[in-house]
Design a protein around this nucleic acid. Structure first.
Lengths: 155, 155
DNA sequence: TATTGTTATACTCTATAACTATA
DNA sequence: TATAGTTATAGAGTATAACAATA
């Protein structure tokens, strides 16, 4: 591979390749918690904005409402999230983490740190900071929403 | 988002986010050619190793043989690839690009350059080189095969 | 009439395994 | 008996659209 007449792999392909790898490895790492990366992202959002409803969450992440129902169903079934009918507008369900959900989120944080350390194991601390800085620059320039994975996007 | 009590987005998530974005944008860019990123990757490999057979290609990319059949079928239907029964071992089919396939590959190269320029538009030439260098370092350290997207992996 | 949440259906994708032909 | 390629089938995932409850 990579014979002389082909140019070295470009940054765009590297990002796609590494991104898929990182996502796959992360899915492996959290598998034993019984949740997928999509669930993990939702847990984070509910923790930050407790009480938000499904439609707003769906719109924010770029998920179809019907898919969000299933995702939340699964989190409820696992005892990580609770739906509470809003008393102000009984059409809304306010989403909150259960105690178990909070503990899962704490475990997730530790997994994220380990995942990060492994994935960037080839880099010095300084290089890792540089990579993150350049990454944030691209996220900003491309108009991406920080902390929202495009894998949700189905609209 | 990103309120004070949350740490800044880590490199691993940024890679996953940007990778999915890059892959999605690339798919958009080549859509008018009537092919998917998976097809594009296969075209590149056939160009580099003309005459290779489906099983070897499938093994190299990490695709199930049955899926490779469909992918090649589609490329044949579009007139980009030709299957030739090997005269040495008639079980093998040697894969080669057609003239149209070669032209498509040239168009792909131009699209890759434009894609790269857009995606890294926020970075200076030097920053882009740094990003690619760090990316290659991680690819190597993680044991990934250069130029092979993990999206193929279904084994 | 509009909105939230939910359910039903149809469709796509693809992993598995059986099968053909060559060796 | 083993390998390359192919086909058939079944299951998972999900987009679409219809629906119920509330406003």
């Amino acid at each position: 591979m990579n014979s002389a007449k082909h140019r070295p792999t470009g940054a765009a392909f590297l990002l796609a390749q590494l991104g898929a790898h990182a996502a796959g490895r992360f899915a492996d790492r959290i598998g034993h918690l019984g949740i997928t990366p999509a669930h993990a992202g939702i847990l984070r959002f509910i923790a930050r904005m407790p009480g938000l409803n499904q439609q707003r969450l769906a719109k924010f992440l770029g998920v179809l409402p019907s898919r969000m129902v299933l995702l939340i169903d699964e989190l409820v079934d696992k005892g990580l999230v609770q739906r509470r009918r809003s008393t102000k507008d009984r059409r809304h369900s306010e989403l909150v983490l259960t105690k178990k959900g909070e503990r899962t989120l704490e475990r997730l944080s530790k997994i994220v740190v380990a995942h990060e350390a492994d994935l960037c194991g080839a880099l010095t601390r300084e290089e890792r900071d540089t990579l993150a800085r350049l990454g944030r620059k691209i996220v900003d320039h491309q108009g991406l929403t920080p902390d929202v994975h495009p894998g949700y996007r189905n609209l």
